[in-house]
Write a protein that binds this DNA or RNA. Structure first.
Lengths: 230, 230
DNA sequence: CTCATGTCGATACACTGTATTTGCGCAATA
DNA sequence: TATTGCGCAAATACAGTGTATCGACATGAG
């Protein structure tokens, strides 16, 4: 070996901290989904060996937790909300938009308790908007109910989106989007009610359907907040 | 080799069909969670080589879909429901109970469209209970809203359950269950509203909290069904 | 009896998360 | 200055994964 083909004077191990690791993992997941995130690839993107990461994270699960909390930073609203209803609505909508930017979030949402600093900040802001409006238990139930709704709704929306993408970008028409298998099932006549809904139902875009269900639930919450439980 | 140490006269490859494969996979998942399901282990439990499975399923994802549909068979209610409200409530509760029996279901619920025969039968039964009560779009929104709720709620319940199990079976008290990390965060005073809710909130068991939120949502649905949209 | 066929099992490959061992540069000491 | 120890980065190792490919064998047809 001569001086010419000698490797770079020194790979000079880049400093590397949790933030950079998480950022690399998020980038990888944004590009190729959660399954594209491997410790080797994350490390490679930072010019390091895989084992290097274990100085900053204990396990891959922990990395996922950190990724989720990173996104919670995007979810946290910047200004004070007008009232509790707007606070809950904005929380739901911002979470949805974050999931559309980072589809892998749908795979993780609700999968384990979100206890990172940003997630806690989001909880804090949300609960603050409900403070004093009702007893704590009712308020807690309100937050949890709305949260359950938008997590489920977001998961389904992303799942449908992927399914449509997989079955050749066909329009959101159920029948041909879901492939001939379901069409055949419906044609058997064993699912008359389902068939009726599929045929007579109007196509609505995911965003308004999300918002509509959300308003229903906010109405329900409003009713309970107005009239505290016995 | 003599006649003595010859292997069993013939391993006689067991017939093997989708049902047996799915049953083995479900058993494995019930025992050790989804991550304990590997094609090798499923095949081993059936006395076959891993590659044998590919004659019946195309991919591991498909096996997961079949597992989910298998559980939908348990979810399908046996009798006709009294009314739409009972139908939706029973659907939600039965799904929850199924997830408590098969915790791995929480990891899969909402992750991809459920289109197996049993899932379709459940949809059929549910939609049939709503038939004629409102225009199809409102009814569809009702089913989807309730579905989003219970999927999200079930996911969170199972996630909390696992977290409690992991942090040494401590009681459901937030503070010590969540470990000292969160306790420390709350002590910083940066999350006053959150701290207040944690301290003043009453402990309610998961089942009633699920049911309460569900009733709220059913109330909301009732209001919309009574008064079809403009 | 020979040959074709189709199915089952073994092998192979690329990859995963993580434990363990190795090597090297720097700091402090003699 | 020479040496020793130490801490950290890297390499290697391991047990496992999903799945493609290939080889053998058993069975049915001519």
């Amino acid at each position: 070996m001569t001086v010419w083909d000698r490797p770079e004077p020194s790979p000079r191990p880049a400093p590397l901290d949790r933030e950079r690791i998480v950022a690399a993992a998020v980038a990888l997941a944004d590009e190729g989904g959660l399954e594209a995130v491997s410790l080797r690839k994350v490390a490679a993107r930072l010019g390091a060996g895989p084992m290097r990461l274990y100085g900053y994270i204990a396990t891959k699960e922990e990395l996922f937790d950190l990724m989720v909390d990173e996104v919670y930073a995007e979810i946290l609203p910047e200004g004070r909300p007008g009232d509790w209803r707007e606070a809950l609505r904005v929380l739901a909508e911002r979470t949805r938009l974050a999931a559309l930017r980072h589809e892998w979030l749908a795979d993780l949402l609700g999968g384990r308790p979100a206890l990172g600093p940003n997630a806690l900040a989001v909880s804090e802001a949300t609960l603050a908007a409900l403070d004093g409006l009702a007893d704590v238990d009712t308020a807690m139930r309100a937050v949890e109910t709305v949260g359950a709704y938008y997590i489920g709704a977001i998961r389904r929306e992303i799942a449908n989106l992927r399914a449509e993408r997989a079955t050749g970008l066909s329009e959101s028409d159920w029948q041909r989007a879901r492939g001939p298998h379901v069409t055949g099932m419906l044609a058997t006549g064993r699912f008359p009610a389902l068939a009726k809904f599929v045929h007579e139902g109007t196509e609505v875009d995911a965003g308004t359907s999300f918002a509509t269900g959300l308003e229903w639930i906010l109405d329900a919450v409003a009713a309970k907040l107005a009239r505290p439980p016995a």
